[in-house]
Simulated scan of single mutants.
Amino acid sequence: MANRAYNFNAGPAALPLEVLQRAQEKFVEFENSGMSLMEMSHRGAIYEKVHFEAEALLRELLSIPDGYKVLFIQGGASTQFAMIPMNLLRSGTKAAYVATGSWATKAIKEAKLFGETSIAASSEAAAYKHIPSISELKYDSDAAYVHVTSNETIEGTQWAEFPDTGSVPLIADMSSDILCRPIDVSKFAVIYAGAQKNLGPSGVTIVIIREDLINKPTTPVPTMLRYDTHADADSLYNTPPTFAIYMMSEVLKWIKENGGAAGMEARNREKANLLYEAIDNSNGFYRGFAEIGSRSLMNVTFTLANEELEKKFVKESEAQGFVGLKGHRSVGGLRASIYNAVPIESVSALVSFMGDFQSRNS
């Protein structure tokens, strides 16, 4: 399609073109209702079909076992940073967090507002360039939970495998890599993810929570910040973000059509390998930020010799239709976010641009 940018934004991020076109066809009138989906009641049969289809697709694609609730909540992962300790951190226990970068640090900061926390492991001393090894994790056997951030978008690091925490509930923020590869949901007590990177547009947050953890909090928690509120009402306690959930459902259909989680992994590894090879074979012109064993499939971070050259790279890339390659303001450098919907053609075009830029600036 003409005039489509090479979209490497970190989030909100690229959506599949096919999904956008399907939504466009149904935008003004949905299912012969005489209304757009955005205009109709969330209590009506038409929307409820969309709502529960989205849940069913998510359960299928992630192979979510029995005993888990799937919730659609607003407020992004940042709200989950507070909801988790508010609902699950009991008096007399500690919550253990693995400090892997910017997003894990924000989760830790929020948890400290509601109870005791400990750091199970940290890569801060290494500028968060790697994920701590599983053997490094240290936490109390009676910890309220262990929290990990599966993928750090800013630093470009990702857990290759997850720890087995036994009887201690394992919680994961998967906002930036959910459904980028198959995972064993049964290893986790809670998985949460903002949709705006791999699952759809911004506005809806997915929470997959083990049913035995959905209890009335031991301390007063506002109604909308309680998991039992949303679980008891099938995420329809109040008006949900209906259009965002519809778009997510369409993205999930697209993922299913393209091989599910395994298909996404093959697609994502091909894209990531292209970019990392371009970096590694540049004779030091491009320098990967993350250590090789912790490199992300979703966010490829790299630097150039100096800030002026990076600014030139961003300016020239933007002139050629590349969007979102400037690194996060907190760490600088460059970043290409290659979530599920980013096509291989965009990555190939970026690799070609990188080669040309190197030849002109070496």
Rank of each mutant, 00 (worst) to 15 (best):
R4E: 15
Y6A: 09
F30C: 07
E31Q: 14
N32A: 13
G34C: 04
S36E: 02
M40A: 01
E48Q: 15
F52Q: 12
L61N: 10
I64N: 05
F72H: 10
A77M: 00
A77T: 13
T79P: 00
M86Q: 15
M86S: 04
Y97P: 03
Y97N: 05
A99D: 14
A99I: 11
A99R: 13
I108H: 09
K109G: 01
A111S: 15
P132A: 01
P132C: 05
S141N: 12
A143K: 04
Y145H: 02
Y145S: 07
N151S: 13
T157W: 03
Q158L: 04
P163N: 02
D164F: 08
S167G: 09
V168L: 00
S175G: 14
S176E: 13
D177S: 14
I178Y: 11
C180T: 15
D184F: 06
D184T: 13
K197P: 00
S202Y: 04
G203Y: 05
V204D: 00
T205S: 09
I209N: 03
I209V: 14
R226G: 10
R226D: 10
Y227T: 06
A231Y: 06
D232R: 14
D232Q: 14
T239C: 07
P241W: 03
P241M: 02
I245A: 05
A261I: 09
A262G: 03
M264P: 03
E265M: 10
I279P: 02
I279S: 02
I279Y: 03
D280F: 03
G284A: 00
S294I: 01
R295C: 08
L297P: 01
F302D: 01
K315T: 15
E318M: 13
Q320C: 10
G321K: 07
R329T: 13
Y339E: 13
Y339D: 15
S348W: 01
